[in-house]
Amino acid sequence: MSLTGVLRPGHVAIRVLELEPALKHYTEVLGLTETARDQKNKRVFLKAWDEHDHHSVVLREADEAGMDYMGWKVDSPATLKKLAADVEKSKLCQDLAWIPAGEHPGTGERFRFTVPTGHAMELYAEKDRLGNNCGTDGPDINPLPWPDNLKGIAPSRFDHCLLYGDDLDGTCKVFRDVLGFGLSEQVLLKADPGTMIGAFLSCSNKAHDIAFIRQPVKGKFHHASFELGSWEKVLRAGDILSRHQTSIDIGPTRHGITRGETIYFFDPSGNRNEVFSGGYIYYPDKPPLTWYDDSLGPAIFYHDRKINESFLSVFT
């Protein structure tokens, strides 16, 4: 196995103001599937069609919108122990805690910590496999390219988050030096190239698994993104969003950073979602791509060449 350590973003837990409209959005418009419900804590667990693991999105009804935490699947229980010890040793994170197995349905124990930008992150090694429903002669045997009965936009997977916070350098240190992520792209200040204002980090072959932008806030959520197979599907997502009168932020358009084709929209609690396609393959020996703040416009929205009003000021 050549992809080791942290494998992928395995779940994102999003706070919603009212569960029912949120569920309608995430299942009928975005097109995820509900896999479990926790009545007591007002949580619903969902997955995208091509994910094998039990869930990748957790919705929790709360008084505030935003993100509770993001979870990362690691390759083994031994790696989980090792990375947890490394996080502790680094002294870079706060609120370290072990969450017992079963607190998320079908999930092993999770190690939780808060990175310097104020975001709670988790590592875990085990989650039940539900499969992707494509096998024709039993699970994963002679599979179809995609299953029947997909609803809405129907992305294949939860892909990444973009988060806003103040101590970008500290958080980058955690992801790069402790968790082994690579820096695929960065945004630097032209007048002071020692100051990074945007970091795009990968633990895999993806152009990014998580991104951060420096803002004078703690623990804020910009968007959770879901993968589509083609630009044509991004356009179709726009059609579906309009049909449901979903609040669209911008797009379909292209990002300069990561080259992804994208559309941004809001869930019924104001949390931003993205569906995107494209990007490139990242390898750990690839030099980081650098953007300067005076090119932030095309870096974010390549066609408009300027960031829209809401990109920097609207988050939850």
Binding site: D249, F266, P268, G270, S310, S313, V314, T316
Partner: peptide, 12 residues
Amino acid sequence: IPVGCRNGGCGA
């Protein structure tokens, strides 16, 4: 009035 999420989450 500045327009943000339109859904009661962002405060814009």
